[in-house]
Write a protein that binds this DNA or RNA. Structure first.
Lengths: 346, 346
DNA sequence: ACGAATTACTATAACGTTTTACTAATCATT
DNA sequence: AATGATTAGTAAAACGTTATAGTAATTCGT
């Protein structure tokens, strides 16, 4: 019970050396008599001894801690990622130290340094958006310079040799836009994530590809740069109204919800006045009025694959595995927020 | 740059003892000549030395890690709590190891033991619901037996002498029910959180108090026990329909959203056919159609107070502070999901 | 000019484990 | 009866820091 019980106390209580105690506690008891084992276990129970993990880590050079960086735990998507990762880690005897970067690239770097200082066994990074060129380079350098296994999730780092796990964003953008095109829309707004964030850029690429396939000229003024949050929804709404679009592809559900709010305030109906397709398949998207048509990311399997891979790398540090980009299939979930274009605009 | 740089290397490089290096690195350099300081800093830079936090913690007996337990990071409310806590901790040079208990009381205990083993400086606990009597007692015992400062957030532990931070749930339940009563409703369903979870029980208490004040007899069959998630929404909906209630107080927003979904599926309107008031003021509640009337919890200030208090306790471990229950004011946010009772039922 | 105080350091014990290399006793083999 | 293998342990070094108690040289007060 008492806090400061050390292995020495157990040794004293059971009348043998700390070496022996350590051996039986770690299952290396081939050469220890049953009687001694019994005495030691008894002493452990009596004193309520639990090994100090700091001391263990110091000598074994393994902490069984994984560092996790996400932009913002309030965001459903990242909250979900974080939960899946922690749960899988826990089941495999790892714990998670986590940090919110707030989409500040410098924070990514600070957290990674902290993880290095704390000797975490691995790092799982969901990179911040809004990266300055310089910061991004520093990040890549920092990663290259450490031996701690690191994998990225959702967003990739330009010019870093690490394994990444993300949905096929290009394809996701493509199927979102194609869906709208098939419904007859031609003036399709694109409410993007932050520029220079791989996921957003790729979704925009896919959007363009679909336009091209349908021989619709790409009009850059139909893009509106968001931040994957709801903050700029009002400006986005104004912009799209001014441009007279009949549909918009919002690059995540949260921004789509922002548009819902603005449409409602303005007394406009979805999909009557505007068709909307989102991205993520947020839990709320099915409950919204109307239910949101969206591109589903397989968050759970992506996250599990990522953490499983990371642990694999940690535990097989000897055999070199080349960095790989793991790509997951997006899926269009058709609900009620999109409809065929009416010939006369509302 | 190289990983295994230790303080000894710095000592060698700068031509002085490790003691001296340690002193200047920790600002205890009153008695160190400027020249030596300069040489040491230079060596540190050259070698890219960063102290091993495990070793530091082992000797200082401080990890600057705080353990956080929440039921489920996917839940907006807990996700928000977790983010606020981590951000405040980070700003004060603490890091967070966190765990999802999945509302399993045994996990709470396992996590706490892990935190003890890892010598976290403090523990912030959002207790799991669904506690068995026995588990709850074990938890209280475990907490009583450790010297690590611990505070609870949102939910309190029966019979444990720890500081708690939560909204005045009783009052919250009261104002929710009173609002409905003022609108003329008399058959008011109560979609509760899990029984034996303090927050839920107290909200129900408040609901009863309001009924009493309006001289409406309390009917236990108007309660339906939920789990703060959306899972049982369908049964809840059926139950309330069968009972012919004209309004329901859902003890959190997520369950209210579940009701939204069911109402919509059934082609029924809110608040036309049913008035609903939620609890939490989830970010989505303003965006739902209709916007949800709900009882706001001041999540941010609750969480900040809790973590601030925890850190205070950690850093003033000597002066004994008695356990206190900190209570925060709920606030009714009136939106569009409630309306006056029409004399003829829909 | 002498002891006391100050300055600029350092050797070493601790923190709580794991692990390597060793010992001493018993057992089996020829 | 001597040799080798096995059994049942232990002493001590190592992990990378901090912190205590010290030393030797200089400065100061009177």
């Amino acid at each position: 019970m008492h806090m400061g019980v050390t292995i020495k106390d157990v040794a004293r209580e059971s009348g043998c050396s700390v070496t022996t105690v350590s051996f039986v506690l770690n299952g290396k008891d081939k050469n220890i008599s049953n009687e001694t084992i019994r005495r030691i276990r008894q002493a452990v129970d009596k004193l309520g001894y639990r090994p100090n993990r700091l001391a263990v880590s110091l000598v074994t050079k393994k902490t069984r801690i994984i560092g996790l960086i996400i932009p913002d735990n309030c965001n459903q998507f990242f909250g979900n990622v974080s939960k899946v990762i922690e749960t899988y880690a826990w089941a495999n005897n790892y714990n998670i130290i986590y940090g919110n970067s707030g989409n500040d690239g410098l924070r990514d770097i600070e957290y990674i340094n902290m993880f290095i200082d704390r000797r975490t066994d691995g790092i799982m990074l969901v990179k911040s958006s809004a990266p300055q060129q310089e910061t991004e380079e520093k990040l890549a350098q920092l990663i290259a310079g450490t031996e701690i296994p690191l994998v990225t999730l959702d967003r990739t780092i330009a010019g870093a040799n690490v394994s990444s796990f993300s949905v096929d964003n290009r394809k996701g953008g493509y199927i979102a836009a194609r869906h709208l095109l098939e419904l007859g829309h031609r003036k399709i707004g694109c409410y993007t994530g932050p520029r220079n964030v791989s996921s957003a850029d790729e979704r925009t690429e896919g959007y363009k590809a679909a336009l091209a396939e349908y021989r619709v000229a790409f009009d850059p003024s139909l893009l509106f740069e968001g931040d994957y949050q709801m903050g700029r929804a009002h400006e986005a709404f104004l912009h799209f109204r001014a441009k007279g679009v009949t549909a918009v592809f919002a690059q995540n559900d949260v921004m789509a919800f922002g548009l819902y709010r603005e449409m409602q305030k303005a007394g406009l109906s979805i999909p009557g006045h505007l068709s909307i397709v989102g991205f993520d398949d947020n839990v709320m998207s099915d409950i919204m009025q109307p239910p949101l048509t969206t591109v589903r990311q397989p968050i759970e399997s992506m996250s599990v694959s990522a953490i499983r891979h990371l642990i694999l790398r940690i535990e097989n540090a000897d055999e070199p595995m080349p960095a790989q980009a793991f790509c997951f299939e997006p899926e269009l979930i058709e609900r009620k927020s999109t409809t065929v274009l009416k010939s006369e605009r509302a």
